[in-house]
Each structure stands twice: as structure tokens, then as C-alpha cells.
Design a protein around this nucleic acid. Structure first.
Length: 859
RNA sequence: GGGCCCUUAGCUCAGAGGGAGAGCGCUUCCUUGACACGGAAGAGGUCAGUGGUUCAAUUCCACUAGGGCCCA
């Protein structure tokens, strides 16, 4: 073995072997209980970022551990066609050649997108492999593949038949750049600087007018009324009068409607029914005309009179100027307000009236709320349930049609009379009038419509496949909080509707990867880190461990290259611990499972007991998805206990013949079990080390450790204290460790203890029957007390300082304890055990204190 | 405006009603046969503030200040 750990070399070696051995397929353990998790499908033309690396690392830790625990594990991979996002990417590349999608036509354009999909989709799967993720690639799916498309059509047809999908004219959010409708949730609101303008709307009969307020002046072109609150006394006489709409000259009525907020602006609002949801509602109640004044590109329509043909923002200025010229501009002031942006391209979204397809969500949401309330699905951390409920109880219908080409075509056909026929396959004739010559709806479905079916469509639904029976519901879903509403909520709705069970029993929410200063990683901040670059530079394993060590549920994960270097150094440490082990334990001689010593010596018993205790806690943490805590614990145990203490002590034990054999055995199984526990987080390195140490089969396919219970040898803590005592003394005195010190020890330490201490800290021990007189430094350590002769060794001043520090520490401890114990409220009201413990503490501390004081005097 | 979360060592974060912890960073010493990508020793905290509950609060409760996120 190389004497340093080189991640790149190791990491190229194992993935294909795992795949070839079929370890990642559930069939690898056909008799195990099924365990299933589906990947949140990445966008097919995107590239993997650190958020994916984190999400996948968590998946992999879960999947690999469950697999080793004997479950029949399916981690199902795949990708999402990501309608608008993908179409945008491909359109952008066309634009570079001076083309747009209409130049190509629908068919050719879609062919083009498929070509992209093949290139980038392949790249993503390669990246997921590079990071070591144990997906079952034989079951890889894509949201637009044949089977999933069938599931989409099936769901659409059934929901339509049940009246839960309908087509209607509503105010929707329109992106003038993507030229498509968006769902409410796809609009991101951002505070933006704008202008609040006040316009005077004169009455048709002369005699004054009313002042209205708006941030979107151009929409006045489409005004068909002015509204006030019915209870607003200021305007009571004006209701029923008529306004002459400035610039357009139309007569529009003043109406009273309870939807108006009398506190906002002047209390009188212009009503633009075709471009504002609230105004739309008012117009429905008041029977006002709905006039579209902006087209699909955000350009003023012919209905906008003199302003037609202008872009909406250009028109805004032009309208304000024109009003000013006519003396109707009452005021304009800077105004910050929240503006809706397209979540795909950040273009300002335009609310406008349009005929679209919608999902009626109330009936779907009810069981999805119930399932979480009943605990059939559990959010981890639980507080996300509150947000989930709040969200689900305030849903508006979901606009699912998109005016793009890349996606699942809506399975609806129209005859020449515009009757709608919804069907699984193209119908011969109109379901209403029997006419032939039907044309299919040109629109496609929201990407999230197919994502909502992912937990069961990927398993073969609507067919009743074996996988579906075995792996639905999935066991757990792991995702970031940013897509709880986009994705998790909708999967719960659809799963409950079509499979009558939750799609997954637990929803684990992880945080965002941030930089070391706590900033969100974003392209605009320029602080993104490419996981593949990190993997090439430091290794995939070190990156994974750095992520996992910070990945507790719900918590953001700060990442810095320094920390990845830290985990790489840990890898080197582990590497060398195995090299050390292999000096004493022949390669291939460690059994792949079990093999714990039956009668270990005290040091071996101590490390085995520690291993067992660590394993229990580790497993508990993992079961609660607290991987940061689990791997923090393991990391610390491995380094601080095993490497720093046990390996050092084994060096002594392995020399003596009588204990060498159990120590060899213990060393082998302890290090082997560390490899097993670490494997889910750092699969490549541990697999490589396993091949040297165990060499029997693959670690990835091995069994999870079951550490027997051992009693820890009680002497160990005192032994460690004695060793530390000597080390502290040496450090304080600046004594070279080469110089062997004579150490007197009372209490009759067993020979193995004496030998261990001698080897570890370079002393020569002589047994003392009682404490020696003056002229010695005392190392108080419990059952054995150490005494070092002062003469010739000691800088007395340094030793006095050391003692003074210890004395001061003990003094505060003693005074605090005795104060507590002299308080009758404490002794009478606190539990007896607590009081007793306090008494013991006091006794022990004052004993040590007086001993230290006398030593101090003696100096 | 409504809701959720956070504030503990220089940094990133654990923690628990009764003795303040880890990793990194920092200081000093050490190339001893696994590892200098290492070892040993050490410095560093009024646990955001105020009030309350309690024999006991950093931990529970209320309020205040500061920060973050979601929804409208």
C-alpha cells in the first residue's frame, strides 16, 4: 500500500465493480425487507451542484446502511424533463444560431431537445456515479419516457372524469418572455423600486372626478370601471356616476364593491378586470367588461388605442406622459413594492386573463393534510408540518397548462365547435357532437404534474407491477425545504388519490449548502463550488464526509474547502491506521463479519466496549437522520479513542506474547468495523481498505456490525489519567520525552498497566507502598498515584504554577459545592440522588485539594 | 401584516433543568518504526439582553434586541 491516501486513484476503481456485482439492486438481498427511496429527479439539462451532492450523499448514507443491515434496498434514479427550464436552454442555443423554435417547427424542435437530453442526461448520471451513489441504474427513469407518460395521461383522464381537472378562463400569471402561463407558486416576489402614480378620472358630466392610484399606469388602458367600498362615506354619492376614461375616452361606471380596501390610496380603485385578479373578481360581481390590453409578449394590443404596439414598460411611461399633458396626473412618487418574477427567467410576470387548464386542489389536499396530521407521513424536522398545513389550507387551483412544446401534451381534443374530448389516445370523434377532424390541445402540462407521480410512476403504475407492490409506499423522501410545496405536497396529494396510501412514510428535509460565511451559494454571488471539481481535487469521499458531517435534519450545511481538506486528512489517518493494522494482522485474515474475541484482555475489552457503545449511539442517530451527529461521533471515536489511544497501546501489547493474539484479533475487528460504519459516508476509501484488510467479497455488500457487549476494564480511565499526568508534567517542565523518568506508583498497579505506562510515556516504574515524603511531584490519578522525584528534573517555579492553576480550579469547585450543600432548600427539596452526588463531588474535590495544597507547601 | 426558525469559544456548530463541549483556527514543544495529511500539551466562553417559574435556568416561560426563511 501507498503510504499516503490518494483519493483520485482509489475512486476510479470501485464503481464498476459494485455495479457488476449487482450490489445496488434490491435483488442483491432478495429475502430482505423492501426499502425504497426515489431520487428527487434532477433537471435533465442542468448540471449537478452542491445541493445535489448533499442530497445524494444523504440518500447514499441511508441506502448503503440499510443495504448492509440486510434490507432489499432500491434507490431509484432518474431525471426530470423540466419543461420550461429545458426548453429555455435549447432555445437559447438556437438563438445563438439566429433561430427560434418556430423556425424549426414543433416536431423538429422537440427532436432537438431530445438530443440535448441524451447528452446532458448521460452527463448527469455519470456525475452521480462519480460521487459514488448507489443507485439501481437498471431501473432508471425519465419523466418523459413512455411508461411515465402513460401514467401522466392516466392521471389526467381520471381527474378530468372526476371533475378535478377543468378548463376555464381565469387571471393567471403570464411570463411574456417564456410566453406561457405559470402557476401561482412559480412566481417569485421581490421588493422592487417603482412609482406610485395618482390619476384624476373625471366624471362624464363635468363636475370634478375621482383620484385613483396605481403602480402599473399602462393598465388604465384596460379599465372598465372604478370601484369604492360600499361603506365608504366619502364616495357614497359618486356610486352610479360615470367616468370618462382619460386617453381612451370610454365611459366607465363607478361601482361599490366590498372587495375594495378603503384604506389603500384614496379608497377609489381603477378596475382592470383582464389584468388583475382582484379586479377580475370585482368585475364578475359587478358585471364589468373584461378588456385585454397586453398580448403574449407584453405588448399593448389594438385595444390600447394610440399606445398599441408599445412594450408594456414603454407604454407605462408614455401613458404617464400623456396624462401629465392632459393635466390629469395628480401625483407621482417613488414606491417600493413587491413585483412578481418568473421563477425560470426572472422576467416580470403579467397577470392576465386567459383560458387554461386547472386542477381543483381542495379535494386532493384534504387527505394529504389528514395523512400528515395522522402521522402516516412524518416530517423531519417536525416543525415543517406547520408550514405544510398552512400552505395546504390556503391553496388556490393549480394552473397546469403551459404554452410550450417540451413536455406531456395535454390529452384533450377539440372539434370544430370547440367541444372538449379528453381521452387516453387520440379519439376518432368528438365525445359531444360526434364530429371528426379533431385537433389536440397544443399545450403541455406543468413539469410538476409528472413529478407529482414520481414515487409510483417510476415503479410501473398504472400497471400492477411487482416493484409497485413491493416498494410502494416508499420508505422515505429526502429533499430540501425549497420544494416542499412544488413537489412534496403534490406527491402526497397524487399518491393518496391514486394509490390510496401515502407515497412515503417520512419526509426528511435538509438545508441549503452555504459558503463558510453562511451565504447561500449562488451564481450571482460567485461563490458556487462545483462538486465535480472538488471531487477531482480532493476526492469524492472527503467531500461527502464534509457534507455529511454537517447534515442534520433541517440544518443548512456550510462548506469550505478547508473542511474538505480536513476530511481528506481524516481519510489519510484512516488509511494509515489500516496500514498499521496490516503490519500486525495478515491481510485477508480478518473475517468479514463477527470474529470478536471471546476473552479479551483489559485494553481490548476497553476498546470493544467503547466500540459497542459508540455503535448503539451511532445507529440511534442514523435512525433519526441525524447524520451530522452520527458521523461526528464516529469520527471522534475513531480518531480520539481508537487511533490516539488504542493503536498506541496495542503497540505495547503486541510485543508481549501472552496478549498478542487477542490484541491482533481485536485490532482487526475494530478497524474492520470502523470501515463498515464509515462506508455509507466514504464508500470508495473504505472499500479499498477492506480489500486489503478483509479481502473477502465487497464491503458494500457486507453485513452491518453487531458488536457484542463487553464490560469496559475499569482500570483504563486511571491508566489514561496516569499517562496524561506524566505528559502534562513533561510539557510543563519542557522535558524531552527521550529522557526516561523514574516514576513511583502507589496502589500496586498490575504489570500490564505498568508496562503500558512505561512504554507510552518513557518512564521507569517502581512500586511504592506509601506516598513518599518531600522532594516529589504528585500526579493524582485515582487508584494509582504517581510520584516523580524533584531533584535534578524540575523547574520548581513551573511546577508551582501548574499546581496553583489546579488548586484555583478545585477551590471554586469546592466552594460552589459546599455553598449548595449548606442551602437547606437544596438538601431538602432536590432529589436525594442529586444531593448525594453533590456530596461525593465535594468530598472528592476537597480531598484532592488538601493533597495538592500540601504538595504546594512542600515545594 | 401573518407564520416558522436562529443567537453557546476567533469561525462552523453540538448540548442538556443539577459538573460548559466538538471540529477547524491559534500558542508551545516533538520528525519515536501507521500517519508531520502526524503526535503531545495549552490558551480561549458573564451560553444575545431583561424579567419570571424553580431549591437550582445556558436549558422551561414571557418580553426586548439582532439575524434568517416562508406566506400575503
Amino acid at each position: 500500500m501507498n503510504d499516503v491516501y490518494e483519493p483520485a486513484e482509489i475512486e476510479s476503481r470501485w464503481y464498476s465493480r459494485w455495479e457488476a456485482a449487482g450490489v445496488f439492486r434490491p435483488e442483491y438481498r432478495p429475502d430482505g425487507d423492501p426499502f425504497c427511496v426515489v431520487i428527487p429527479p434532477p433537471n435533465v439539462t442542468g448540471s449537478l451542484h452542491m445541493g445535489h451532492a448533499l442530497n445524494h450523499a444523504i440518500h447514499d448514507v441511508i441506502a448503503r446502511r440499510r443495504r448492509m443491515q440486510g434490507w432489499s434496498v432500491l434507490w431509484l434514479p432518474g431525471s426530470d424533463h423540466a419543461g420550461i427550464a429545458t426548453q429555455n436552454v435549447v432555445e437559447k442555443s438556437l438563438a445563438e444560431k439566429g433561430l427560434n423554435r418556430f423556425d424549426l417547427g414543433r416536431e423538429a424542435f422537440i427532436d432537438q431537445v431530445w438530443e440535448w437530453k441524451d447528452v446532458y442526461g448521460w452527463r448527469i448520471t455519470q456525475q452521480i456515479r462519480r460521487m459514488g451513489n448507489s443507485c439501481d441504474w437498471t431501473r432508471e427513469r425519465f419523466t418523459l419516457d413512455e411508461g411515465l407518460s402513460r401514467a401522466v395521461v392516466e392521471v389526467f383522464v381520471r381527474l378530468y372524469a372526476d371533475g378535478l381537472i377543468y378548463r376555464g378562463e381565469r387571471i393567471i400569471n403570464w411570463c411574456p418572455r417564456c410566453e406561457t402561463a405559470l402557476a401561482e407558486i412559480e412566481v417569485e416576489y421581490r421588493d422592487t423600486g417603482g412609482e406610485l402614480v395618482q390619476i384624476l378620472y373625471p366624471f362624464t358630466d363635468g363636475g370634478g372626478g375621482m383620484t385613483v392610484t396605481t403602480t402599473r399606469a399602462e393598465t388604465m388602458l384596460g379599465d372598465t370601471g372604478v370601484a369604492v367600498h360600499p361603506g365608504d362615506s366619502r364616495y357614497r354619492e359618486m356610486v352610479g356616476r360615470t367616468i370618462r376614461l382619460p386617453l381612451m375616452g370610454r365611459s366607465i361606471p363607478v361601482v361599490a364593491d366590498p372587495g375594495v380596501d378603503p384604506e389603500f390610496g384614496t379608497g377609489a380603485v381603477k378596475v382592470t378586470p383582464a389584468h388583475d385578479p382582484l379586479d377580475f373578481e370585482i368585475s364578475e360581481r359587478q358585471s364589468l367588461e373584461k378588456l385585454l390590453v397586453l398580448d403574449d409578449k407584453g405588448v399593448v394590443t389594438r385595444a390600447g388605442g394610440p399606445f398599441s404596439g408599445m412594450d408594456r414598460f414603454e407604454a407605462r411611461e408614455a401613458v404617464i406622459d400623456a396624462l401629465d399633458k392632459e393635466g390629469l396626473l395628480v401625483g407621482r412618487e417613488p414606491y417600493r413594492h413587491s413585483v412578481g418574477l418568473c421563477y425560470r427567467c426572472e422576467t416580470v410576470v403579467e397577470p392576465l386573463l386567459s383560458t387554461q387548464w386547472f386542477v381543483r386542489v381542495d379535494e386532493l389536499a384534504r387527505p394529504a393534510i389528514g395523512a400528515v396530521r395522522e402521522g402516516d407521513n412524518r416530517f423531519i424536522p417536525a416543525h415543517w408540518e406547520k408550514s405544510y398545513f398552512h400552505w395546504m389550507e390556503n391553496l388556490r387551483d393549480w394552473c397546469i397548462s403551459r404554452q410550450i412544446w417540451w413536455g406531456h401534451r395535454i390529452p384533450a381534443w377539440y372539434c370544430s365547435s370547440d367541444h372538449v374530448t379528453v381521452a387516453r389516445t387520440a379519439p376518432e370523434a368528438c365525445g359531444t357532437c360526434g364530429a371528426g377532424e379533431l385537433r389536440q390541445d397544443p399545450d403541455v402540462l406543468d413539469t410538476w404534474f409528472s413529478s407529482a407521480l414520481w414515487p409510483f410512476s417510476t415503479l410501473g403504475w398504472p400497471d400492477e407491477t411487482e416493484d409497485l407492490a413491493r416498494f410502494y409506499p416508499n420508505d422515505v423522501l429526502i429533499t430540501g425545504f425549497d420544494i416542499i410545496y412544488f413537489w412534496v405536497a403534490r406527491m402526497l396529494k397524487m399518491g393518496l388519490r391514486f394509490l390510496e396510501d401515502v407515497p412515503f412514510k417520512e419526509t426528511v428535509i435538509h438545508g441549503l449548502v452555504r459558503d463558510s460565511a453562511g451565504h447561500k451559494m449562488s451564481k450571482s454571488l460567485g461563490n458556487t463550488i462545483d462538486p465535480l471539481e472538488v471531487a477531482d481535487r480532493y476526492g469524492a469521499d472527503p467531500l461527502r464526509l464534509a457534507l455529511i458531517q454537517a447534515a442534520n435534519p433541517g440544518q443548512d450545511v456550510p462548506l469550505d474547502m478547508e473542511w474538505v481538506e480536513g476530511t481528506r486528512r481524516f481519510g489519510n489517518k484512516l488509511w494509515n491506521a489500516v496500514r498499521y493494522t496490516l503490519r500486525h494482522v495478515p491481510g485477508g485474515s480478518v473475517p468479514s463479519h463477527g470474529g470478536y474475541p471471546a476473552h479479551p484482555g483489559p485494553v481490548d475489552r476497553w476498546v470493544l466496549a467503547g466500540l459497542g457503545e459508540m455503535a448503539d449511539r451511532f445507529d440511534r442517530f442514523c435512525d433519526e437522520y441525524r447524520f451530522s451527529d452520527a458521523y461526528g461521533l464516529l469520527y471522534n471515536f475513531a480518531w480520539a479513542e481508537v487511533f490516539d489511544w488504542y493503536l498506541e497501546m496495542s503497540k505495547t501489547a503486541l510485543v508481549g506474547p501472552e496478549e498478542a493474539e487477542t490484541t491482533r484479533q481485536t485490532l482487526g475487528v475494530v478497524v474492520r468495523d470502523l470501515l463498515k460504519f464509515f462506508h455509507p459516508a466514504i464508500p470508495f476509501l473504505t472499500e479499498e481498505l477492506w480489500s486489503h484488510l478483509v479481502g473477502d467479497g465487497l464491503l458494500a455488500g457486507s453485513d452491518w456490525p453487531e458488536v457484542p457487549v463487553y464490560d469496559p476494564a475499569p482500570e483504563m480511565e486511571d491508566l489514561k489519567a496516569l499517562v496524561s499526568g506524566v505528559r502534562q508534567f513533561r510539557a510543563a517542565q519542557g522535558l524531552s520525552h527521550r529522557r526516561t523518568l523514574p516514576l513511583g506508583v502507589t496502589g500496586g498497579p498490575p504489570r500490564w498497566v505498568a508496562k503500558m505506562v512505561e512504554e507510552m510515556v518513557g518512564v521507569e516504574i517502581s512500586a511504592l507502598t506509601e506516598a513518599p515524603g518531600d522532594g516529589h511531584i504528585h500526579l493524582p490519578t485515582g487508584r494509582w498515584e504517581g510520584y516523580l522525584p524533584v531533584r535534578g528534573l524540575v523547574d520548581l517555579e513551573a511546577e508551582r504554577q501548574r499546581l496553583d492553576r489546579s488548586i484555583a480550579r478545585l477551590e471554586t469547585q469546592v466552594s460552589r459545592s459546599s455553598q449548595k450543600l449548606s442551602n437547606r432548600n437544596f438538601t431538602e427539596r432536590a432529589p436525594a440522588a442529586v444531593v448525594e452526588k453533590e456530596r461525593e463531588k465535594l468530598a472528592e474535590a476537597s480531598g484532592r485539594l488538601s493533597s495538592l495544597r500540601s504538595r504546594r507547601e512542600a515545594l
